[in-house]
Each structure stands twice: as structure tokens, then as C-alpha cells.
Amino acid sequence: MTDSFTIRVDGRVIEARQGQTIMEATEQAGIYIPRLCDHPDLRAHGSCRICTVLANGRSVAACTQPVERDMEVKNRHPRVEAWRRQLIAMLFVEGNHFCPCCEKSGNCELQALGYLHGMTATQHPHLFPRRAVDGSHPDILLEHNRCVLCGRCVRASRDVDGKQVFQFAGRGLNRHITVNTEAQLDHPGLDLKDKAVSVCPVGAILKKHKHYGVPVGERKFDHDPIGSDVESHDQDKVT
């Protein structure tokens, strides 16, 4: 095929196709690039910046940057990994994240990224913002304290559920997720089965009555670090 070529990721040569993003090409080759706002079923957003890589020496978000022929990508590069640690720490301190008492612990992508990057404590001061908890929906809890502004719910509701229950409001540190119709979560639009409810990477959108359905110790990231699924996908192919 004329529109297929190779790129190099940390020295490894992989196949890529014209029109793919770096994220898509590496995913297919079983290379994991850490990410938070990106989700395979949603349009890329490029907001968390955790998937930042060096592409031909320039820093770009892997989830939005198209591949180019012979592109040289640095993913597991000391500078890039230091930046990622900074970003993960920023997300922790700008919200109120108390893992030991969070229902999402073990299934939380932010927590899992923290572990993956060897984060123990943050060098940044906690900002302790004052944010509301919205429990008005009978089945769904909206915990803004844990929101990382990845916008997955915004995109899922708009593009997959066709509802637009969520949207961004405010700017800067005051940027936040707002809910349709005067901040009432019992908007007729939001349903437990909605994609918007299931895509939250952290404990900001929670299904009520189900928090401890899976005990701690048996949760998604309790045994295998985040990204293992991507990398094992590659090993399956090899063997």
C-alpha cells in the first residue's frame, strides 16, 4: 500500500498508515503511550497532555498528532517521562484526590498512572479547591472534587449518546464540567447505560449502589499496571 510506511518509536521500527495518529500506530504495534483524556471510542481531545512524546524532536500530543513517514518518536525518554510525572502530579494537586477513601481506587486511571510513573508524593503544594458534589441523580453521583477535566464525558454524551448532558464552563483553574439544565443531574437525558457514565477515568462520575461490587485487591490495576493490556496485545501477536 502506498499510504503505509514505517516510523521509529524509541528505536523500534513499526508500521504506520497515513491518517493515523501516533497513538493509533503505536497502540496497534503493542507500544503503550500513557494517556488520560484519550479513549479508543472517543474523538481525540489532547487536553491532559500526558501522552506528550517527542516527534522529530518536537513535543506533541500522541493522541492528536498524525504520523509522518520516517517519523522518529521518543516515548520512554527521560525528559518526556519527567514531564509526565509533573503533569500527573499537577492533576493530583489541582483537585481533591484521597485514594484511600475513593471508591474508584484500583480502577482509577490517574492513580494507576501515578503508580506507573513511580509517584509517591508530589513536590507540588495541594491547591485544595472547593468543589461541589452533585448527588441529585437517583443512580449517578457527580464528584467534582475528583474531576480531571479530561472531557471524556462531554465527548461521550455528545458524540456517542447524542445527548450533550455535560459541557465545559469557566476558564483557567475555574474551568469545570457543567450539567445541562440548571445544574440538575436528574436531567432526563442522563441514563445509567450512557457511555458518558462509564468512560470517566477517575472517581468523578460514579454509579451509585455499586461502589464495592468488586473488592479491593481484585480491581483492574491491582495486579497489572496500566497499559499492560496494550503491551500484551503485542505479545499475543508475536507468539
Binding site: M90, V148, R171, G172, L173, N174, R175
Partner: peptide, 21 residues
């Protein structure tokens, strides 16, 4: 910069606040 950041991406939204602090 803290006042004017759009807040879309993590480093600009939170990082500038930490720099300021």
C-alpha cells in the same frame, strides 16, 4: 497568565498556578 489561561490543557491550567505560588 493564571487569570487568562483557558484551562483546556493540564500544564497551562494547573502548572501556571503552581509557578505563581
Amino acid at each position: 497568565f493564571v487569570e487568562e489561561s483557558c484551562g483546556f490543557c493540564t500544564p497551562c491550567r494547573a502548572g501556571n498556578v503552581l509557578l505563581l505560588e
